[in-house]
Design a protein around this nucleic acid. Structure first.
Lengths: 338, 338
DNA sequence: CTGTTAGCGCATTCAA
DNA sequence: TTGAATGCGCTAACAG
């Protein structure tokens, strides 16, 4: 009894009843005498019994666990996604296992393998910045392992996706900047293949189009999202014959890197260069100047993704993949008001 | 074969050998003919076999999984801790399951229960701000479930702990502020019972003492770490007959809340009030003014905690609990330079 | 209402 | 070197 955890067998032995009766009592089976149930529950309590989920999982071939793969944890956006997922999962009786790809494609594949080994019932995945081939996802589909993509998604797969309207968000940003009188609006994007890069680029382009402006290639940069790379590319923008009068950064962390760099070069924001981000991190209004950005409901995205996946797990037959698209809100602050 | 995942039984059937042979071949048992092993490995590859970790866990009564409980995920500090833990765990063949208590004592207890149910091999815990009784930890000790406490710890338990020298960190801060000429240094602390509150308070007190100053109760506030509470308490500080000339916040997030509030009241930092945080979040130098703070090696803490726990798991007999204390570094920036 | 039995996938003891 | 048998803890028929 000292060694290892208490099992239903221990309870049965103590009570001199069968283990199946104990099992039933514990699971509130309707066909159990109230008295017996009470005895069992009392003894379970007394012995400090905790059900062995591993055994349960093996038995029913379900782990009641969801696997999560995100590019990184130390990002407020993904941490909020995860919170939303977790809260939803818990309230519906599921646990989660979290992996981070560290923005590496290989790590992402390895994470998925690990989670599959652990027999998670389903996966919630946000792709790494490096991911531009998708066999590992096809493989999941082949193996009929349910998963949902969120934020950093890939289109064209028969799976549910949860995103914000990235294109519209970028459109709002660009239009706003044009409205502020900006005419040379740079876009500090992410890796070309990344979903959000493409979508936000599309919105940027659309807004420029509408105002009869054309995308200028030297104003579009593709950062790998590291501070170092962003700095170098920002310098390139400053070195242009005609400097941009605004920079739209693909997300707030990149915007912050740009902001730091511009300040270090003695440039005034927004006077010299207006700046806009995307995500609305909680500190973005504590910056100086406060950062104009696009609010992205990260927690909500997590909830929706998790609920969708869980619905799928509950009801595999009549499940239809959905492309859930959330609205964004442009938050105008000082960094973009000329 | 379509239904469910491939098992060693499937491999055995295909190869017309016994499942124990397959099992052995897969585990590189020395007593297996090379030829047989090759055949098995090839077939496993071909069938896309993934070992069922759940079954393995049940069999060997080990899950190779560590449980993590943190107050919140959407905090750069804890996210970094977790990264350190994860990297270490993975490199030593372990997975992790993460729970957040959302700073709730009840949730913390429930998280631990959940992780125990999942039969994690050990736990890494950082206590919630509400936690001021420790039976749930005693219970773990009774049940001989190994765990390590980090950052938000409780002393006096026969378990390893990983912290920074909170007291010394706070001492450095306070001394620095005194050196800047501050004489009314307020301490915006956290909940009284919280470990870091007590330790940082001690350092604050020690520095004041050394300079012949006494702790003034009206200059010490205990925030519950929410923005709202911090704002109210900051207002109280401003309402004092004699306003403080410096505020030392228990951590960077609280410092940022204070900063926002001071700015909203038109106060100049550091001219009117100097401000210092603790943690060194990556954005703290992008704030205006850049925030003086204490660098806390979060990733490193995670690594040390995980390594300690894993050592314990490998070698349960001759394991001695350790109190690992890391150094901190005061990062002086503009918010405190009068 | 309760007990008996079988089996989830795997590792391992004992035989051969 | 391999196979047969056992059991990890639990749930779910099937029988009473």
């Amino acid at each position: 009894m000292k060694k290892g955890q208490v099992t239903i067998r221990d309870i049965a032995l103590k009570l001199k009843i069968s283990i199946s009766t104990v099992s039933r009592a514990l699971r509130d089976s309707p066909e159990i005498k109230l008295e017996t149930r009470k005895k069992v529950l009392a003894m379970a309590e007394k012995l400090n019994y905790t059900p062995n989920v591993v055994a349960q999982s093996l038995r029913v071939n379900k782990t009641k666990t969801l696997g999560i793969v995100v590019p990184q944890l130390a990002s407020h956006f993904f941490a909020s996604n995860i919170s939303g997922i977790q809260d939803t999962a818990y309230s519906r009786g599921y646990n989660v296992m979290i992996c981070q790809s560290n923005e590496s494609f290989d790590q992402e594949k390895s994470d998925i393998r690990t989670l599959i080994s652990s027999r998670v019932d389903g996966l919630l995945i946000s792709l790494s910045r490096e991911t531009s081939s998708y066999e590992h996802l096809d493989n999941l589909i082949e193996r009929e392992i349910p998963f949902v993509l969120f934020d950093r998604i890939h289109e064209g797969l028969p799976v549910s996706t949860v995103t914000v309207d990235d294109s519209l968000g970028a459109y709002k940003v660009t239009k706003h900047l044009i409205g502020q009188g900006c005419r040379r609006i740079a876009f500090m994007s992410g890796p070309e293949e990344m979903y959000i890069s493409k979508k936000r680029m599309a919105g940027y382009e659309k807004a420029l189009d509408e105002y009869g402006m054309k995308v200028q290639n030297d104003l579009v940069k593709h950062s790998d999202l590291t501070e170092n790379c962003t700095q170098i590319l920002t310098q390139e923008l400053l070195d242009l014959e005609e400097m941009p009068d605004a920079i739209f950064a693909i997300n707030d962390p990149v915007a912050i890197d740009v902001m730091k760099f511009l300040k270090s070069r003695g440039l005034k924001i927004p006077a010299d260069v207006a700046l806009v981000g995307f995500t609305n991190m909680p500190i973005s209004d504590a910056l100086e100047p406060s950062l104009t950005t696009v609010d992205q409901p990260a927690y909500e995205m997590g909830k929706l993704a998790a609920n969708n996946l869980l619905d799928q797990l509950m009801n595999p037959e009549d499940f239809e993949p959905q492309a859930i698209v959330l609205d964004t809100e442009l938050i105008v602050r000082k960094s973009s008001q000329k």
